[in-house]
């Protein structure tokens, strides 16, 4: 069974269509890199899946559950936003406890490896207000991975992280994928997209232009890197050579 099904998803803000008839299916154990220019609809797509934005048309199902008012499907989601903010006066430990309390029974099988891997052990008793932006991103990463989600949504996860921590975070994402999670990552870093993505979902003007493996894009264009291949692929002469459009 597909983990995520996007069925004719559209979202309109006033007169602007942020998403138009997006149709796609994402499987368990798959990493999908969501890319596209600024304002292409990446954030809206992710927010629709998380239930934060209400679609104008179409629907989304996650693990067979329709995304709607019943919040129980979100128990299987891990989300790392691009910019994380937490209650400033709580300590990191209190924040982790708060989330575990909210998750209830699902917090039983927690994965705390990332706490030590990202060097967070010593920060557990620190006030969140005293942490730097990068440290708060690490806290956010820990929360996203902690409850062994079926669907991991990472919005520009390496932005603001030092290279070593960024590497460890992406390793954790690959580990989650091997354990059967569907991993959705938005990124502007083409090396990341090429290295991590089983498929690349390209959005432009709210439309999903393609969902293809990166190798296929490279093969179709004859380029060696995705950053070179993507513009070439998007130009008309290559489009007809690749299936899946």
């Amino acid at each position: 069974m597909d983990r995520v099904v996007l069925d004719g998803l559209s979202k309109r803000y006033g007169r602007l269509w942020a998403l138009r008839d997006v149709r796609a299916r994402f499987a368990p154990g798959e990493t999908v890199m969501v890319i596209g220019p600024n304002g292409s609809g990446k954030s809206t797509l992710i927010r629709c899946m998380l239930g934060l934005v209400h679609p104008t048309e179409g629907g989304i199902s996650i693990n067979g559950c329709e995304v709607g008012r019943d919040p129980s499907y979100r128990a299987g989601i891990g989300y790392m936003p691009q910019f994380a903010e937490f209650p400033r006066e709580l300590t990191v430990e209190q924040l982790l406890r708060m989330m575990s309390d909210i998750r209830g029974s699902r917090s039983g099988a927690m994965d705390d490896r990332l706490i030590s891997q990202l060097g967070m052990d010593a920060l557990l008793d620190k006030r969140i207000g005293s942490l730097s932006g990068g440290m708060r991103q690490k806290v956010s990463a820990v929360l996203a991975f902690r409850y062994r989600p079926d669907l991991l949504v990472l919005d520009e996860p390496t932005a603001g992280l030092d290279p070593v921590s960024a590497g460890k975070l992406l390793d954790a994402a690959m580990r989650a994928k091997r354990d059967g999670a569907t991993v959705l990552i938005t990124s502007h870093i083409m090396e990341e997209v090429e290295r991590l993505g089983d498929r690349v979902a390209y959005l432009e003007d709210g439309r999903l232009r393609f969902v293809l493996p990166p190798e296929l894009i490279l093969e179709a264009t004859g380029e060696r890197t995705l950053s070179q291949a993507l513009p070439a692929y998007l130009s008309k002469k290559h489009r007809s050579h690749v299936e899946g459009l």
Binding site: L50, G51, R69, Y79, E85
Partner: peptide
């Protein structure tokens, strides 16, 4: 407004708005 980003994170948890 100061809590908005965290409220969004709470809205992604299995909680009713």
């Amino acid at each position: 407004f100061n809590q908005l980003e965290f409220t969004v994170l709470l809205a992604v948890q299995p909680l009713r708005r």
